[in-house]
């Protein structure tokens, strides 16, 4: 039997030291993804360091009217937190659109951001996968890829990230706080995940031993509204074919402020900077939304069976922006 050690430190420094000192160590949050991957033989850690008891379980208001969310906060708790529901509806909606109630009760915010792709080849150790076994190949390009990436993929990997939370956080300008053997640092959430390039085995920019301690949200833009919408093959309990998180502030019929992020299209939450720029000051109409989103999506490189995602993402983004602009 493949054995592993399990530690449950109560002190962050001890947790970091444990993982930093062992290349086969992994942090364990709610375990909703890592434990599955261990059963499949995809992950074979020597040591699990359970970080769910570390003092990262609080949701606190920051001085400026933002929110600091501890990495060990459970998805279900954050989704129903009064300040989240009031100020960041997109975040609450994203969390509630993910997984099932039971999984949301177990999953943590930090763990959610670090979940692995659900690409079927990644999860099947009997087949090649560059993300799981670098250099072994990517059968998804020619194989089953209806769910996989149309943006930012490489010849080595077309995996998608499946976190709904990350998409909302990307649109909400979240910052991720990290602690590691070399001290602490902070990153914009949009810099946490990386595109595959020629190193698809690395999902994020985290260094070994680095731990997400908190996610911080700036105050929501004044008078802006936000929403998250996810399209999937069934009404609940499915990963996104495409999803959109948007923050929109319309003044006098023109776009005053907009932030837009896509899920289900790439290996990371896709912040649509191009579309945002194109929309700045433009009339808040479906036509200008569509034109701007199209600009962003010209970078799409669809494969045989996932081309529908391009049209889907465009129409979904237009629908969400129109809803926020109350065009209906």
């Amino acid at each position: 039997m493949k054995t592993f050690r399990y530690e449950r430190p109560t002190d962050p420094a001890a947790a970091i030291a444990l993982v930093a000192g062992d290349s086969g160590a992994r942090y364990l949050g709610g375990g909703t993804n890592l434990v599955d991957l261990m059963k499949l033989g995809v992950e074979t850690p020597e040591l699990l360091v359970d970080v769910s008891r570390l003092p990262f379980g609080e949701v606190e208001e920051t001085g400026g009217g933002g929110l600091r969310i501890g990495a060990a906060v459970r998805n279900s708790r954050l989704a129903t937190h009064m300040l989240v529901r009031e100020r960041y509806p997109a975040l609450s909606q994203a969390l509630l659109s993910g997984a099932s109630a039971q999984l949301r009760n177990a999953a943590t915010i930090g763990g959610n951001l670090l979940q692995r792709t659900r690409c079927l080849y990644f999860q099947d150790v009997s087949k090649p996968c560059n993300k799981r076994r670098p250099g072994s190949g990517c059968p998804a390009r020619e194989g089953v890829h209806r769910d996989l990436a149309v943006l930012g993929a490489s010849e080595h990997c077309i995996a998608t990230s499946t976190s709904d939370l990350a998409v909302a956080l990307a649109a909400l300008d979240a910052t991720v706080h990290l602690a590691g053997p070399a001290g602490t640092r902070s990153l914009p959430l949009t810099d946490l995940h990386r595109l595959p390039g020629d190193a698809p085995e690395r999902d994020t920019v985290l260094r070994h031993g680095e731990l997400i301690t908190a996610v911080e949200l700036p105050p929501p833009p004044r008078s802006a509204r936000s929403a998250y919408r996810k399209v999937r093959d069934r009404a609940s309990y499915a990963f996104a074919l495409a999803s959109v998180a948007a923050v929109l502030n319309v003044r006098d019929g023109a776009v005053h402020e907009v932030r837009l992020a896509f899920g289900g299209l790439a290996a990371k939450p896709w912040r649509a900077n191009g579309a945002e720029e194109a929309l700045q000051g433009r009339p808040a109409t479906e036509d200008s939304f569509a034109a701007a989103v199209r600009t962003e999506l010209t970078a799409c490189r669809p494969l045989r069976d996932n081309g529908y995602k391009v049209a889907l993402a465009e129409r979904l983004a237009v629908a969400v922006l129109a809803q926020l602009a109350e065009l209906d």
């Binding site: 093959d233 069934r234 009404a235 609940s236 309990y237 499915a238």
Partner: peptide, 8 residues
């Protein structure tokens, strides 16, 4: 392999 969830 998707089968209907209660929400469907």
């Amino acid at each position: 392999y998707h089968v209907a969830a209660c929400a469907d």
